[in-house]
């Protein structure tokens, strides 16, 4: 037990990934500890989603390692990673369109390795309970995002990777979502949140990692990130 707790929950070391000559990830190192809520920001094309895909196992890196509680996962398939406690949501919400909301949850609860999940309760929390017999493809986009979260939670994750969930949600939905994420955090789930909307990020955390062209260029709190020359250049210099 003690040896396990001495490891960070997630340790990403020197991850590299090239797509046809383009360095999408160029030696990324970061770690997430239990209970952390960590924001991940950076301009388009900086490699954030590629990093999330690498951690969740949808993409195999060319080099480097991904470890969870000290156990190496670098070559493990996505479903194995779900079983140790990593799950994610998608930038483009990705429910099983032809399955009902309820069936979406059943698949995750059955195969995600969590036996005692209260699906009813999760759907109620996500505000989807009244739609449980509806085909997921017929939900609106915000509802599909919520289903993504609920489905991920049905596997009892210890780390959630949240990929740009805020885009397209209205302010009321945003504050409600932030509240939910904070609740998950206080229930002991670590969060790595990729986000463009800094104000949304500020609702749930103070700590961010900033990426640019495949590398981490800043790690610290949001306030000092906005003072950092390199970060300012990356975000403002591009728009000139």
């Amino acid at each position: 037990m003690s040896s396990e707790s001495s490891w960070p929950l997630l340790a990403v070391r020197d991850i590299r990934k090239t797509f046809g000559g383009l360095h999408a990830l160029d030696g990324v190192t970061l770690s997430v500890n239990e209970g952390d809520v960590l924001g991940l920001i950076g301009p388009n094309g900086s490699g954030k989603t590629t990093l999330i895909n690498t951690i969740s196992g949808l993409i195999m890196p060319d080099g480097g390692s991904v470890a969870f509680k000290g156990h190496d996962l670098t070559r493990k398939s996505p479903d194995k990673r779900v079983h140790v406690g990593i799950n994610r949501t998608y930038q483009v919400p990705s429910p099983f369109h032809k399955l009902t909301v309820w069936e979406n949850m059943i698949v995750a609860a059955t195969y995600g390795g969590a036996d005692d999940v209260d699906i009813e309760n999760l759907l109620r929390r996500a505000g989807l309970h009244e739609f449980k017999d509806r085909e997921a493809g017929r939900l609106n986009s915000s509802q599909q995002k919520l289903l993504d979260i609920a489905r991920a939670l049905a596997t009892s994750p210890k780390l959630m990777l949240v990929d740009e969930i805020a885009a397209g949600l209205n302010p009321k939905e945003l504050s409600w979502l932030a509240e939910w994420l904070l609740e998950l955090s206080s229930a002991g789930i670590a969060l790595l949140v990729v986000e463009h909307l800094i104000p949304f990020l500020q609702l749930i955390t103070t700590r961010v990692v900033v990426m640019d062209v495949g590398s981490v260029i800043f790690e610290g709190d949001i306030a000092s990130a906005t003072q950092d020359d390199h970060v300012i250049e990356v975000f403002l210099g591009r728009s000139k």
């Binding site: 779900v82 998608y90 990705s94 099983f96 369109h97 032809k98 399955l99 995750a108 995600g112």
Partner: peptide
């Protein structure tokens, strides 16, 4: 429906 989602649902 979505093989990536299925994988990250543990399938």
């Amino acid at each position: 429906d979505n093989s990536n989602s299925a994988a990250t649902a543990g399938v």
